[in-house]
Design a protein around this nucleic acid. Sequence first.
DNA 1: AGCTTTCGCTACGGCTCGTAGCGTAACTGG
DNA 2: CCAGTTACGCTACGAGCCGTAGCGAAAGCT
Lengths: 213, 213
Amino acid sequence: MQSRSTPPTRAGGRPRSAEADTAILEATRQALVDLGWTKLTLGDVATRAGVAKTTLYRRWAGKSELVVDAVAELFDELELPDSGSLAADIEGVVLQFAALLGRPETKTALMAVVAESTTDEPLRERIRASIVDRQKRLVLTGRARAQARGELPVEPDAASAAATADLIFDVIAGAVVHRALVSAEPVDGEWARRFTLLILGGLSAVSGRGPDG
Amino acid sequence: MQSRSTPPTRAGGRPRSAEADTAILEATRQALVDLGWTKLTLGDVATRAGVAKTTLYRRWAGKSELVVDAVAELFDELELPDSGSLAADIEGVVLQFAALLGRPETKTALMAVVAESTTDEPLRERIRASIVDRQKRLVLTGRARAQARGELPVEPDAASAAATADLIFDVIAGAVVHRALVSAEPVDGEWARRFTLLILGGLSAVSGRGPDG
DNA sequence: AGCTTTCGCTACGGCTCGTAGCGTAACTGG
DNA sequence: CCAGTTACGCTACGAGCCGTAGCGAAAGCT
């Protein structure tokens, strides 16, 4: 996962405790739930994890990196169930992503580290590698399946196909995040259905008929 | 604007300096550019603005509230130019919103305060009132114009119409924010064109033909 | 005038930061 | 078994920021 700060890793010497690692990440998530992003302190996390504060600083450069690793583990749960239709696939991934964003630890952490990454390029790359790309795969496989079913045309131009995939990704992830965290309204089956209708058929499709289409 | 913390406002007494207010908000934006969200301190803002630190604390409850007010002013610039077609309207507002998110002060501030708002309900309400609703108006007027032109059907059910408007809003704002801040790739005319194509015609429309459609 | 509120300034205790130093623990290779 | 190497827990430290209190002076209103 390349999460921790890699030391020169010469052979020999006492190995880093794996239990400490998991304890720290779990303690970080719990601290996020209890305190939120700003009030979370590394000293508090160390106490919760039962390790010394110095141990934390030996493995992570700072608060942002630690939190990214802590929430990145949660994004491993994301999967794309093969529902048999593109619409069902989209609804499924939307609801799954929404459930993840519903957890208090991801809620407060995700936006905060992204905010931090706007003035910290290495951090942004870390987020991309351990969180964002994991979601992007869902879009790629989902589209491949839809194309195999004949639900979507195969774009001949590779550059155009990549741009479309990026677009779809930003639209889906962005819309769910905005609905869940900015508008702070529920991402339920009803919303997922309307959203999918919009993505597949466009504005006229979603506003032309009722939600029970 | 109801931005500052309203004192009991009895008659009489020395009025609050309006110059200090604008100086503080301007200093806050500049500090955001120079330091980013986390490294911004209220003491530093006070020094930049040429006011005492205590003056700041008399008007704002904390860092989050101050920053919200500082960036909210920038969102007043948003306007919906009547371009004559729904597609052009969408592209216009997307590019306008993207330009706003391109500024370093909004970049780092917007996500940070939203992150904070997930554990601070009054702050979320403040953001909604002074920032989010301002964008939502653009969606409502844009749709009204499109309906007047006959480009969009008029939804008879009021609840359904409101749900659609919320959906459109979350999709547009969310996609632009995600593209600009998470993917960190340019929101240019090319992207705006493809995005508009997707919103209006759905997935098959954007992947069916090339970007020069 | 007298009253009221804000202002700038100084000072303070409390908290967090990130690091340094030390002795000990764990694991590796000769 | 014994050096060598690295991680660990612990303590302590200067530095910086927080948010508030207290003061005298300034700027309005009646």
